[in-house]
């Protein structure tokens, strides 16, 4: 397998607050894995640990890339991005005062991506034509759906192989959520990406997920090997489906 992300028994938190407790997950090449859980259960913290923004106090995160193995707990974020991991952060986290185009440029900060700047930009504008029209506009002045497009496009500008998407549904209308999720699937297929998506909206997430983990209070409580297994699970039924 050419790409494999392995998170093994990590603990992480903020000061005295423990957000993750012995979390282990794995994501393999070409998969779309959903990380399911309601607010405040540690999904974003896990994403930040993978990106090197939050450091786990215990455990290991490794990324196997072709014949090299990277210890993500030791690499700074820029090196992790350089290795081919990109994140679409929760709440989008754009550069609101910079133009749409500058936002996209910043996604391509790593030297390899800079060299392919023109192609990257072309690809993003093809995937999201509205961004081309609005490329001179400050990103903060756009609608929520368009901002989500900028965030996804910005992540793609770094030419990632593994894309982390943190709560793409936050702040979007149901129709836009459906479109965003479909877009992620489309991009994944056309670019051969591997996707790890954190989501609280189970119904939307399992439309495109191959597998899923359910995280509750910082612990992985269930691993569903397939869509059907997730839907059939007791926890899911009581949490989300109310039966």
């Amino acid at each position: 397998m050419a790409l494999k992300l392995t998170v093994e028994g990590i603990d992480a938190g903020y000061g005295a607050v423990r957000a993750l407790d012995g979390v282990s997950i794995a994501v393999g090449e070409g998969e779309t894995v959903a990380l399911l859980g309601t607010n405040g259960n540690g999904k974003s913290t896990l994403m930040k640990c993978i990106m090197g923004i939050v450091r786990p106090s215990r455990g290991a995160i490794t990324l196997q890339l072709d014949d090299q193995t990277l210890d993500l707990c030791r690499l700074p974020t820029e090196e992790i991005v350089r290795a081919g991991v990109a994140m679409v952060p929760e709440g989008r986290r754009l550069f609101p005062k910079l133009t749409v185009e500058e936002n996209l440029f910043l996604g391509a900060f790593r030297p390899e991506a800079r060299r392919e700047l023109a192609q990257g930009l072309d690809f993003c504008y093809q995937a999201f034509p509205v961004l081309k029209e609005r490329r001179r506009q400050p990103a903060g002045s756009m609608s929520g759906g368009q901002q989500q497009m900028v965030a996804i496009a910005r992540a793609l500008m770094s030419r990632p192989r593994l894309l982390l998407v943190d709560e793409p549904s936050v702040g979007l209308s149901p129709l836009l959520v459906t479109q965003t999720i479909a877009k992620i699937k489309e991009l994944k297929d056309s670019q051969g990406l591997t996707v790890l998506m954190a989501e609280q909206n189970l119904h939307q997430a399992i439309r495109i997920a191959d597998r899923g983990y359910i995280i509750v209070h910082g612990k992985i409580v269930f691993h569903g090997e397939s869509r059907a297994a997730i839907e059939a699970n007791e926890l899911v039924r009581s949490y989300y489906l109310g039966v």
Binding site: E78, V81, P89, F95, K97, F109, A155
Partner: peptide
């Protein structure tokens, strides 16, 4: 690119970091 990265820091440093801006 240095200036571009610095503008990103000014606008949203956390976002700059998670984009891989050193």
């Amino acid at each position: 690119w240095i200036g571009r990265g610095l503008r990103a820091v000014r606008d949203n440093e956390e976002a700059a970091e998670s984009c891989g801006v050193p």
